[in-house]
Design a protein around this nucleic acid. Structure first.
Lengths: 210, 210
DNA sequence: GTAAATTTTAAACAAGTGTTTGAATTTGTG
DNA sequence: CACAAATTCAAACACTTGTTTAAAATTTAC
């Protein structure tokens, strides 16, 4: 065994390249070169490129989801009749699990969000299917929680507003390099994932409440 | 000359396929087959695939921008000291120019927005550069107008919130087929571009104002 | 109507893609 | 150490990509 095994090195390289160039514009040769492994090892360890994409996502979810569930449980445990669940707190519950991803490798939090975004438009829905098959229950639970903090909004309305929110998040992360470019030249500010998320939450809260 | 000339047929086919599959996942063979023209005619009429992408965007902008400028002028002409420019009105000013695109072909309004979104992440910024080179002045003017309706918000803050808004719009349009799929099965509602935009504007207004 | 310019066409090009192969090498186990 | 299993490797596979070519067809202009 090397210090870092081949499988992990492929995942690390793929994660970064997918986030930058997208799934279809990242070749296995790019990935294996970056990872310093043989071209054929992707198919040996993962079977196919499609499976590799799913494996990258799966690694995020294995870290993100348990952490998120714990945090959500903590939050709901604190609720009483007099102390109702609050939208702002609910949204902040996502921050820690998200930033926890950076323990996988630097920028993983951002890469994860970019991947979610690309999953909607680039992979004919097989990533979306993967998520709803494996975490559908949790997702319903989350939807439930949002609904309870916004009791006056219809399900349809909530559905759309949550997607607007997801869009604001995902687009900002996907266009990140472009935005950072503009932002830094125009305003000369450093942009970290945390920085953006903290600007985003108030925006989303206002939009969701309307 | 045929009823519709080759150049236009290529543009029409490219527009649709780009919106669905993205730039890099749409081949010239797909486009020329869909357009019922010879493969080589793309390079003959446009020079390269990259130029074709730009030509598709240019066609949108030639319709969208003049209409938008007219509408914005109408809006500012109505302003007096007592009748200040309003954020909600400003946003609604974008709707007509946007839907005017549907005269190019059905769904062009949506395709335009999808293209803007993809332009941020898929083309290494050459579409963004094209826009700011050709319409930079108008864009600054628009930024100006937003700033005047939100005098209490810093330039940096406004910059980010406008991109959140753009993200909400663009992501929703890009993931449209996916969302429509979910939405229809879950809520059985028809989703038109207008429908989405009308749901989106209040969301954005609230988020921008905060 | 004929010559010139424009456009269309089929074929081929080089380059890049994911995947498979079978031999070489490394690793784990008795 | 020796054997077997797991892994790595270079090479080739079949296929798709954007682009170019040069001949054929069409349109335009005189």
């Amino acid at each position: 065994m090397k210090k870092i095994d081949t499988k992990t090195r492929i995942l690390n390289a793929a994660e970064q390249l997918f986030a930058i160039y997208g799934f279809n514009n990242t070749s296995l040769r790019q990935i294996t070169t970056e990872a310093n492994v043989n071209l054929a090892s992707v198919n040996y360890h993962f079977g196919s490129k499609k499976s590799l994409i799913q494996a990258v996502l799966a690694r995020y979810l294995q870290v993100f989801m348990p952490t998120l569930i714990t945090e959500l449980d903590n939050l709901t445990a604190q609720q009483t009749n007099t102390n109702q669940l609050n939208l702002n707190d609910l949204l902040h519950t996502f921050v820690k699990p998200l930033l926890a991803l950076n323990q996988i490798s630097a920028q993983s939090a951002r890469n994860f969000m970019v991947m979610i975004g690309r999953g909607y438009s680039e992979t004919q829905g097989h990533l979306r299917r993967y998520i709803s098959e494996n975490y559908g229950e949790t997702l319903n639970h989350i939807m439930q929680l949002f609904a309870s903090t916004l009791p006056n909004i219809s399900r349809t309305e909530l559905f759309w507003r949550l997607h607007f929110s997801l869009g604001a998040l995902v687009f900002t992360m996907t266009s990140d390099s472009a935005l950072a470019e503009i932002s830094e030249s125009d305003f000369s500010e450093k942009v970290s994932t945390e920085y953006i998320v903290n600007k985003l939450i108030p925006f989303i809260v206002a939009g969701l409440k309307n």
